[in-house]
Structures are given as structure tokens and as C-alpha cells.
Simulated scan of single mutants.
Amino acid sequence: MRLSIFPLTGAILFPGLQLPLHLFEPRYRALVSDALARDRRIAMIQPQARQEGAPLYSVGCVGRIGEFEAMDDGRYNIVLQGESRFRINRELDVTTPFRQVDADLLEDDHDEALSSVERAGLESEARLFAEAQGYRVDWDSVTRLDDMTMVNGIAQIAPFDAASKQALLEAPDLAARCELLVQLMQFFGLHDGDDEGRVTLQ
């Protein structure tokens, strides 16, 4: 399918989760206007570098615009609801100010669940990670989340570097994403605070 993309380093969206965005550049204001006039879908994906026109990673996530605010100066505040991961086949030559790709949607098993051991290990590591980072967490609410929402939610908001977040998004299934997430939280916990506090597996 043809997708209009918003390439943004460090911004990861997972199916079933929300991502608030503030769009002010003219090309991305045009992207939102176009999406609102059609199917309200925008495809989030990370570029492999920060320069203009940089190559894209191969996997992203399609989001549907839910809440939005159109400002008088043309800017938008929107909330994207994650719908489906996708894999790029090729980038298209277009006349629009925003980039477009030909892509295939990836079929995820939304009923997939962790084993009791995997779930317990994730919750334990998440508590240690949150405490080390000084986060306040409503653990009663967290423990009531289903496995998919918990894993993807942590993966989306955790302060990992772009490559690590991309690896989480590309994980083939929930168990693999959970295992990588635990490894990243453990690695981050051992990080000494150099490199501006960012963690990387590179």
C-alpha cells in the first residue's frame, strides 16, 4: 500500500498505543492536511541519520489521527493511534512536499501473551529500571495491563537510543521484544551517564 510518512528520529509508535505530536514545518502541516482529507493515516518511521532525505529504516508503524487541534498559524497538535507495523518495499518519486513509500503491512498476533516467567521477569526489571531513573509509576495500574500493552508501552516511552528503539519495533514477536526490552533496561541500569545519558547497543 502507498503510505505518507513522517520520518522522525527517536519517535516510535506501536500498534495499540498513542503518540502525541506537534507539527509546525510546512511539509508536515501539508502531510496532516492531506491525511485528514483522506483516511487520517500517517506512517511513522525513523530515518537512519538526521540529515535531510536520509535513508529510512525498513520498519515503521501506521497511525490514525484521533484527536487533533488546528491552530490559526497552520500548526497542528495531533494524537496518533497506532494501528499496524509496516515494512517498506521502496520509496516513491512524488511531487508532494512529504515523502511517500510503497509498503506491506505486517500481521501481528495481538492475542500473543508472555509466559508467567517472562511476565514476572519484565515486571521485576521494570520496577528496578523505574526506581533507578526516579520515575513515579502506578504499579497497580501497570500490573493490570495485558502483556502486549505493557511490553509495547515500555518500549515506546523508555529513554533508549534510536537504534535500540528500532530494534524493539522490529522484534518478530512479543516474546522476542520482551527479552530485548529486559536486556536494554539492564544495560541502561549499568550505564555510567556518559554520552549525554543515552544508551546504545552499537
Rank of each mutant, 00 (worst) to 15 (best):
M1Q: 05
L3E: 08
L3F: 13
S4H: 13
I5E: 01
F6Y: 15
F6L: 15
P7T: 12
P7A: 07
P7N: 07
L8T: 10
T9W: 00
A11S: 14
I12H: 00
L13I: 08
P15M: 11
P15W: 06
G16R: 10
L17I: 07
L17T: 10
Q18D: 09
H22C: 01
P26Y: 09
R27W: 12
R29F: 02
L31H: 08
A35H: 03
L36C: 07
A37M: 09
R38F: 08
D39A: 10
M44R: 04
I45H: 02
I45Q: 06
P47T: 05
A49V: 00
G53A: 07
A54G: 04
P55W: 03
V59R: 02
G60R: 02
C61K: 00
V62D: 04
G63W: 04
G66L: 03
E67G: 06
F68P: 03
F68C: 02
E69Y: 09
E69I: 13
D72R: 13
D73R: 08
Y76V: 08
Y76A: 00
V79R: 12
G82P: 05
G82I: 11
E83G: 05
S84C: 01
R87T: 14
R87A: 15
E91P: 02
E91N: 07
L92P: 03
D93N: 11
T96Q: 12
F98G: 03
F98E: 04
Q100T: 13
D104A: 11
L105P: 00
D109V: 06
D109Y: 01
A113S: 13
L114P: 04
A120Q: 15
S124H: 13
A126W: 13
A126I: 01
A126V: 07
R127T: 09
R127W: 04
L128D: 10
A130P: 05
E131A: 14
A132F: 00
Y135G: 00
V137S: 07
D140V: 12
S141G: 11
V142C: 06
T143S: 13
R144S: 11
D146N: 15
D147I: 11
M150R: 13
G153Y: 09
I157H: 10
D161E: 14
A162D: 14
A163G: 08
S164Y: 00
A167D: 14
L168I: 10
R177L: 05
E179A: 15
E179D: 14
G189P: 09
G189T: 13
G189H: 07
G189V: 05
L190K: 14
H191D: 15
H191C: 12
D192M: 05
D195F: 14
E196C: 09
G197Q: 03
R198S: 08
R198D: 11
V199N: 04
Q202R: 15
